[in-house]
Write a protein that binds this DNA or RNA. Structure first.
Lengths: 346, 346
DNA sequence: TTGTAAGCGTTATCAT
DNA sequence: ATGATAACGCTTACAA
């Protein structure tokens, strides 16, 4: 406890100088005691560590950031945590980053507008890189990210640019698989329930689905496309809309599980229909709720664990190639998890 | 691009000195141009901002942390994001912190063991405070948090200690309300489905429930207590367990919504029972899934928005009273949201 | 192995 | 209003 110039009581954090004084060594000795491979005698190290422990000293990493220009902090930009898929992805990402000795500087973003100011703030903390699972895919966002001149790793994004790498689920291929599954189940009136228009991953899934239906000999004109927004409610409303328009599908591929759950509930509650008996439903993400008995929803698992590992690889590579813009893409296959919603109805 | 001593190419970030040189002013002028209420002429400020823009300069906040000892970073310690309640709470917290000009340094923690090393790392970044929604309530955790000597704000925690403040949902009162509701619905065989043993919020809910039942004239011996772990699966299994033990409840109060969803699904699928017809179900948290048609679950809304606001108040107060350990508690009433699972069955 | 001293990029103080 | 300068707490040559 000391008095500063203004006479106010202030607790200064314990510094290496304090420890040095107590241990009767130089301040650099303290630094060396806490540096893994510095040349220091066991005796000195002991003295320092003892003094440090008794004072409750912890090395301050802030000055090291100034010296090295590396903060070991990564900006993680997220949104849509109400979707369990993103929530668990964030959890895994946080764990992986920490295991790599990186800190997570988290920013929640609602829209592209918030993003700019968020990035500004992150940059002033000299973050080493940015990781984002944001489904925002505009050119201006890509430009903003590229201008940071630090590595950027995106999930399920179509962003491209000098510093931007991406890890994508194989959306198109999954769409194909969904179509083939529906064809095998004898679906004749398929519906594609899309996610937000700007979500390019969703678009790819839809295109793959369309593609697959054509391959199976179905006139593409027979495919009904609906616009959702990735929420349960929008799935629920989509079904009501279909019935209003006198469309009676026997197979629905939904761009994500949340909407698929809404679809199943609307069919059951509003139309008195059950899947797979009356309609086959396929979702995407394999969120925990897909396995819940009320839904028993066939879905595509994105293997977030593997996607996160890939992202870390990209990150390590990009951070290693310091100051050289890298832009790679990894694709991870999504795996069809078949459940009751597409079971063979005998 | 410059060459450092080792001959390797390195991009040095643009500094205020660079801007000063370009603008033909002193380095302090640059600093002033970026400080909201510094005395600087409009002309100089213009020159500086122009130079800064053309060089792509952004003020570096790291040195300011060294000078002031404040990093404006808050360590946010979380876990259990697979529960949508925690995920949305985190989202709101992140937004609120950012609005207060604070950055979120996120750490995911699985167990009390990880916590220690996580806190160590956070501290080395000189975070100003810690906010956590962790349901870990051991004495050792409280001690560890107190020893940080920085403000700590907990959600739904019973931790107490010099630097620790808490925002709690009124768990006991909610338990009472649940009991009264069940009494009104004529429940005679109530069941309490508890969350993890160490979760004190869950315990308080159970005690309130018990209390309320007694008030309503029900012998407490009639209350069956089950142990869950806050997951859907544990709710599902709990029902199966009840039937195995030949217990036939007509009212179940679950410590959280995830388990309640499992309960409803098990009743419907395994026992062919519907709520509220055969049993009245009440959950806690009011997660989005509670409103889904398959569940239509009566639940308690914790008003996370308000709890987050309270947490920010506590944080501001604690940060204002720098170096003075504060420990306050705010209690926010949880609100009963009645849905179909407790509707009057005629 | 150890100590001394320079330097990282700002902000704050002081003189001008 | 502006510029020079000290200071923040470390890491890292360099000297001893």
């Amino acid at each position: 406890m000391s008095l500063d110039k203004h006479g106010k009581a202030a607790i200064r954090a314990v510094t290496s100088t304090d420890v040095a004084r107590m241990a009767g060594v130089s301040q650099s000795a303290v630094s060396r005691a806490f540096s893994p491979d510095a040349s220091i005698s066991a005796r000195t190290k002991q003295k320092v560590l003892a003094a440090a422990a008794s004072l409750g000293y912890r090395p301050n990493r802030i000055p090291a950031i100034m010296l090295s220009g590396r903060s070991y902090m990564v900006g993680v930009v997220i949104g849509g945590l109400e979707n369990p898929f993103y929530a668990t992805a964030l959890e895994r990402l946080a764990v992986a980053l920490r295991e790599s000795g990186l800190q997570v500087l988290l920013v929640h973003v609602d829209d592209a507008l918030t993003l700019d100011s968020a990035l500004d703030q992150l940059l002033s903390y000299r973050i080493d890189a940015v990781v984002t699972s944001l489904a925002i895919g505009s050119k201006s966002v890509a430009r903003a990210l590229s201008q940071l001149r630090i590595p950027v790793v995106c999930f399920n994004s179509s962003l491209v640019g000098p510093w931007i790498s991406t890890v994508n689920s194989n959306n198109h291929a999954a769409g194909l698989v969904a179509a083939r599954l529906m064809a095998r189940r004898g679906v004749t009136h398929p519906v594609w329930l899309a996610g937000p228009v700007r979500n390019t991953a969703s678009r790819a899934r839809g295109e793959g689905f369309c593609h697959g239906l054509r391959e199976a000999g179905m006139p593409v004109a027979d495919l009904t496309r609906l616009q959702g927004d990735d929420t349960y409610d929008s799935g629920y409303e989509a079904v009501i809309d279909l019935w209003k328009r006198n469309i009676r599908p026997d197979g629905i591929f939904s761009s994500n599980d949340m909407m698929a759950c809404g679809v199943i509930d609307a069919l059951r509650e509003r139309m008195g229909l059950l899947c797979p008996r009356d309609a086959v439903i396929v979702g995407y993400d394999n969120i925990p709720q897909a396995a819940w008995r009320s839904f028993d929803l066939t879905s595509f698992d994105q293997h977030t664990e593997q996607m996160v590992t890939r992202a870390m690889d990209l990150l390590d590579e990009a951070l290693g190639a310091k100051d050289t813009p890298l832009s790679r893409t990894h694709v991870v296959d999504a795996q069809l998890i078949e459940r009751g919603s597409t079971a063979c109805s005998e």
